[in-house]
């Protein structure tokens, strides 16, 4: 029994003290790191101007839905900044924040967005121009697993929508199309980052499908490989929504700070920061000012193509859904 009390004592001593009012934890997704590094500096300065004191801004990063799970399981994040509304919906379903969170900030609470583009090897040897080139025999493409990564889900949905909306397209045609597409995928990495390594460093595949902001990082890191970007005729708009986790913020007494933290995402400074980090700002004026960095794209939203995220999820990615059926009879 002595051991029990000493273990309990240790746990007690190690438990971190609960954060004060001027402290905030932002649970965010993987590729948002470089952005939040500079954003937090900018916001801390802004908050100091307003309140006179410097806030402590902590950030936690991980896969978007893994982060959502952590928040549901008790990670005390005051705000969440995700790469899919589905993940914030899941947190809302657990009762930590209001279900109408998307109405609380402009642009459906999404201050920035990205999109799925293709990245091909130097000189584009396979002549990849659009989705239809990806299903050709002999073309190998790397897509992260739609079951475990946001990039994969968006890529799948974009392919589906392309096949469905082109002349003569319908749901059956779309199903046949994605089936052919995934037959050309040699590796299903569990995350976007793993897929990048597979494509860039292992030399697997002719095309990698991933988020535009990640493509910027890839071209920087692997500059000598001369990878090229291909913009398909249609792609998906991937909103990066943000929300205050009401219950946690109330508990910490950080609601005011949390709200200000999110609202500042829409300021011209922050919008410019998004652009500088390869993420498309929601403000069209800022986007146009950075046209050199962001080529014009013809995008659809998941709501337009699939009704709602929840619907897309249950039809395509749930257990035994359409995506699983692609692999069922192999």
């Amino acid at each position: 029994m002595k051991k029990l009390s000493s273990i309990a004592g240790l746990l007690l001593a190690l438990a971190t003290s609960s954060p004060g009012a001027a402290e905030l934890l932002n649970a965010s997704f993987d590729v948002a790191r470089p952005f939040y590094k500079s954003y937090n500096t900018a916001f801390a300065a802004e908050w100091k101007r307003r309140s006179g004191s410097e806030p402590t801004l902590n950030v936690s990063h991980g896969g978007s839905s893994k982060q959502a799970r952590a928040v549901i399981d008790g990670l005390e994040a005051d705000v969440v900044t995700m790469n899919s509304p589905l993940d914030i919906d899941a947190i809302a379903a657990s009762g930590l924040l209001a279900k109408d969170w998307q109405t609380r900030l402009p642009q459906a609470s999404s201050p920035s967005w990205s999109t799925i583009l293709f990245i091909v090897r130097k000189g584009n040897p396979k002549g990849i121009r659009d989705w239809s080139d990806l299903v050709k025999p002999g073309v190998k493409l790397v897509i992260p697993n739609p079951k475990t990564s946001g990039n994969g889900r968006y890529s799948y949905l974009a392919a589906w929508q392309y096949a469905k909306t082109r002349p003569g397209g319908n749901d059956d045609a779309a199903k046949a199309f994605v089936s052919k597409l995934f037959a050309n995928v040699p590796v299903l990495d569990t995350g976007g980052r793993g897929a990048t390594t597979t494509f860039a460093q292992r030399g697997v595949g002719d095309v990698l499908l991933t988020f535009e902001n990640e493509i910027a990082l890839i071209r920087e890191e692997f500059a000598k490989d001369g990878f090229e970007v291909v913009v398909p005729s249609l792609t998906v708009r991937a909103d990066n929504p943000v929300a205050v986790v009401d219950k946690v913020a109330a508990k910490h007494g950080s609601t005011e700070l949390a709200r200000a933290y999110l609202e500042y995402h829409y300021s011209p400074e922050a919008q410019a920061l998004f652009a500088a980090n390869g993420v498309r700002p929601a403000d069209d004026k800022v986007l146009k000012a950075n046209a050199a960095r962001f080529p014009a794209v013809n995008v659809f939203t998941v709501e337009q193509g699939f009704g709602s995220w929840a619907q897309a999820q249950s039809v395509h990615f749930s257990d035994g859904g359409l995506f699983d059926q692609l692999f069922a009879k192999k």
């Binding site: 697993n145 299903l188 692999f327 192999k330």
Partner: peptide, 10 residues
Amino acid sequence: IFIAGNFPMV
């Protein structure tokens, strides 16, 4: 997971 390929059923 890095080396497997992660294909369902395979």
